Computed example of a mutant assay.
Amino acid sequence: MIVDRQGRRFRNLRVSLTAACNYACSYCVPNGKRLVAAQDELPADTLARGVAYLIEAAGIERLRITGGEPLISPRLDAFLAAVAQLALQDITLTTNGQLLSRKLPQLQAAGIRRLNVSLDTLDPLAFRRIARGGDLATVLAGMQQARALGMQIKVNMVPMRGQNLDQVLPLLDYCLEQGFELRFIELMRMGHLARDHNAFVQQFVGLDSLLELIGQAHAYQQVDAPLDATALRYQIPGRGHFGVIANESVPFCRTCSRLRLSSTGWLHGCLSSNNRHYVGDLLAKPRHEALPALQRLLVKALADKQELAFSGGVTVMKVIGG
């Protein structure tokens, strides 16, 4: 097991199946152009082998499948079938929900029981303005169908001044009524927002402002969350829960257990670091050759983590998964 001086280790792996996305969200890409798949994206069996090697080399326990948008990847079905056979405590998937209805049979067959759906507004016009693609009604229908199959759903919202701050309470009420858990994610200084400080500051909504807004309509209380959780968790008595991923206001770097594997075979130990470590060549090697080399790279990836707080990074989030 690889552990740093703060006692951190990698427990959670996020695998990006593809950099491609059928949205072009304003906080992710600045020019409205949808990201496309990289030419050198690894085959599904190679990515799945990477997960298997990382379980053994790093002690990975939980897997989240991300993108881009994983549901548009031609690798999805084969990857799901492969990782379903691995010794993982939990497999979840993050999606924008646009293709959820179509892909639910495959997800259910692979044993996926928990989903994270990115949704920033219940206003159809604002939805099109922020996502720059897709259809709100299709997403909501997919979520309802997933819930009917017994899947647990968390909804991820990025509140932004001038774009969707008026949707905080409507979306929270909707999620409480539907039995979904809403998680507010503070805007991150990633990609173009890491370079454009003014744009970031103008749109950023911090934890205190968010809780003040929620407190105008709901009484809430903070409840316990796992030590390495990214979200602060709150309960609205008799209604349900919501969370806030306050990466700027209340950094969680000291307890971060996340590792990311890109669709092109790069390991990212920290979103705030520009360092990355190529493992694509190792994944073609037999286990006895790959594991020692992989462990050496994992030591470097763990050292990339910030000591105290998230400081931003120029990498586009969609390339390496949320």
Results as ranks from 00 to 15, higher is better:
1 M>Q: 09
4 D>V: 05
9 R>K: 12
17 L>I: 12
19 A>W: 00
21 C>N: 03
32 G>L: 08
33 K>F: 12
34 R>D: 01
42 L>P: 04
43 P>C: 07
45 D>K: 10
48 A>D: 07
54 L>F: 01
59 G>W: 04
61 E>A: 12
61 E>S: 08
62 R>M: 07
63 L>D: 07
68 G>I: 03
69 E>H: 03
71 L>D: 03
87 A>M: 00
88 L>D: 03
88 L>F: 00
89 Q>C: 02
97 G>P: 02
98 Q>V: 06
103 K>N: 08
108 Q>A: 15
113 R>G: 13
116 N>Q: 10
123 D>I: 08
124 P>Q: 07
131 A>T: 13
134 G>I: 10
134 G>A: 06
135 D>A: 12
136 L>K: 09
137 A>N: 09
141 A>D: 15
141 A>T: 14
142 G>V: 06
145 Q>C: 01
148 A>S: 15
155 V>M: 10
155 V>A: 07
156 N>V: 08
159 P>A: 06
164 N>S: 07
167 Q>M: 02
168 V>N: 03
170 P>Y: 10
170 P>T: 04
172 L>M: 11
173 D>Y: 00
174 Y>H: 15
176 L>Q: 08
179 G>V: 09
181 E>R: 11
181 E>Y: 01
186 E>M: 08
189 R>M: 09
196 D>I: 01
205 V>W: 05
207 L>W: 09
210 L>D: 07
211 L>F: 08
220 Y>M: 05
220 Y>V: 09
221 Q>D: 11
221 Q>N: 09
229 A>L: 11
237 P>F: 03
237 P>Q: 06
240 G>N: 06
242 F>M: 11
249 S>G: 10
250 V>N: 10
253 C>W: 05
254 R>T: 13
254 R>I: 00
255 T>K: 05
259 L>W: 10
260 R>G: 06
260 R>V: 04
266 W>E: 14
268 H>R: 14
270 C>K: 11
270 C>Y: 11
273 S>I: 04
274 N>C: 01
275 N>W: 00
277 H>Y: 15
277 H>P: 05
279 V>P: 08
282 L>N: 10
283 L>F: 12
288 H>S: 14
295 Q>W: 01
297 L>W: 05
298 L>M: 01
302 L>F: 10
306 Q>T: 08
307 E>T: 13
309 A>N: 02
313 G>C: 05
315 T>L: 13
318 K>E: 14
318 K>M: 09
